[in-house]
């Protein structure tokens, strides 16, 4: 429907990808080809590298190329095209050429039973690439505004859609054409004790944790980052300066995840204001599991635990004996301990 709003206005937009002509596996493009014609909304063969390369060329001619990669897990064959062709086109041609009209849409994240190749969150790989933008919406309304901005943005954008929400999220979406600014985070819940930063589907999990924490008298500020690169450091910084604590959560594995970047940047900027180490509640450093998905995911309870220990960090630390510290650590990082223990056992 978002694409309908866009298509209405611009004649040089094209939507294509695997099975897109029939509406796509998640029905995102239903009715588009009837409405805008098969010349502008069409199926491609199963060849991700080809799809993205083709889209870059199309965009380089001044068009809006909206390419769909059926699952974010399948984006890797196109990785070279995105990283080496799309992202650097403007820079290496001294601004003669660009593919700013390129938007790559891809459903990402857990879906409850997706297994290894239908659940991954590859956003961090792309956040390491100057020249593209990475955008992830949290709800239908946000998706429309952000996608329209992404399509119109003069830079190539990788737009990850939380596939868990395709069938779950229901929201009033305005019919009119509207845009939401990129690189602008949004405080979706105000609080004073701790700042929580996330994006996409994870925000609803974090929000539940905020509600639970509130029952214990902890006031959480929840921020939707929306654009991962270039990201809104200032808003996070000012929030952390207010609360003194930060927790980042994402589904992707913790090591090298975008949470690490946020953690490092905010530590640099707010070092003297931080009252506890930045907490990261993320996916485990394992391949995305099939039967163990509930263990892998950064669930509400994991977040709630981390909120509590972060908020209580200073007071616990202050009065602690070494033994006390140890138990505290163990409690906070139980699953990390479990991981280490298992690692030893396996080896």
């Amino acid at each position: 429907m978002i694409l309908v709003a866009y298509g209405r206005q611009v004649d040089c937009a094209y939507v294509f990808g695997e099975d897109v002509g029939f509406g796509g596996v998640f029905r995102c493009t239903t009715g588009l080809s009837d409405r805008f014609g098969k010349q502008r909304v069409f199926n491609t063969p199963l060849c991700e590298q080809g799809i993205v390369g083709f889209a870059i060329g199309l965009a380089a001619m001044g068009n809006r190329a909206i390419a769909e990669i059926q699952f974010a897990d399948y984006i890797f064959p196109a990785f070279d095209q995105i990283v080496n062709e799309a992202a650097k086109f403007r820079y290496r041609s001294g601004n003669q050429f660009n593919c700013g009209g390129l938007t790559i849409r891809a459903p990402y994240g857990a879906v409850g039973h997706g297994g290894h190749y239908h659940s991954q969150s590859p956003e961090a790989f792309f956040c390491h690439v100057p020249g593209i933008k990475v955008v992830i919406p949290r709800s239908p309304q946000q998706a429309k505004g952000l996608l329209l901005s992404s399509i119109r943005d003069p830079n190539p954008v990788v737009f990850f859609e939380p596939k868990w929400l395709y069938r779950l999220a229901v929201e009033e979406v305005p019919e009119n054409d509207y845009m939401l600014p990129l690189s602008e985070a949004e405080v979706i819940r105000e609080g004073s004790d701790i700042t929580l930063v996330g994006w996409g589907a994870q925000l609803s999990v974090m929000e539940q944790a905020c509600v639970e924490a509130e029952k214990d008298g902890i006031s959480c500020e929840l921020i939707d980052l929306k654009t991962l690169i270039p990201w809104d450091k200032e808003k996070i910084e000012s929030s952390v300066n207010k609360t003194g604590r930060l927790l980042v959560s994402h589904e992707a594995p913790i090591t090298g995840g975008f949470g690490a970047e946020i953690s490092a940047s905010i530590t640099e900027r707010c070092f003297l204001r931080l009252e506890a180490p930045v907490a990261r509640v993320c996916g485990l450093d394992t391949p995305f599991p099939l039967v163990f998905e509930p263990f892998y995911l950064p669930t509400k309870n994991k977040i709630l635990d981390a909120i509590k220990s972060t908020v209580n960090y200073y007071s616990s630390y202050d009065k602690s004996s070494p033994v006390h510290q140890h138990t505290l650590l163990e409690k906070n990082h139980l699953w990390i301990y479990a991981f280490n223990a298992l690692d030893r056992r396996v080896a």
């Binding site: 394992t286 599991p289 039967v291 163990f292 263990f295 056992r345 396996v346 080896a347």
Partner: peptide, 15 residues
């Protein structure tokens, strides 16, 4: 039975 929960962490790397 379901695999032991420890299997979540096995076979990722070996030493």
């Amino acid at each position: 039975p379901m695999p032991d929960p420890s299997e979540l962490f096995t076979n990722v790397h070996v030493k």
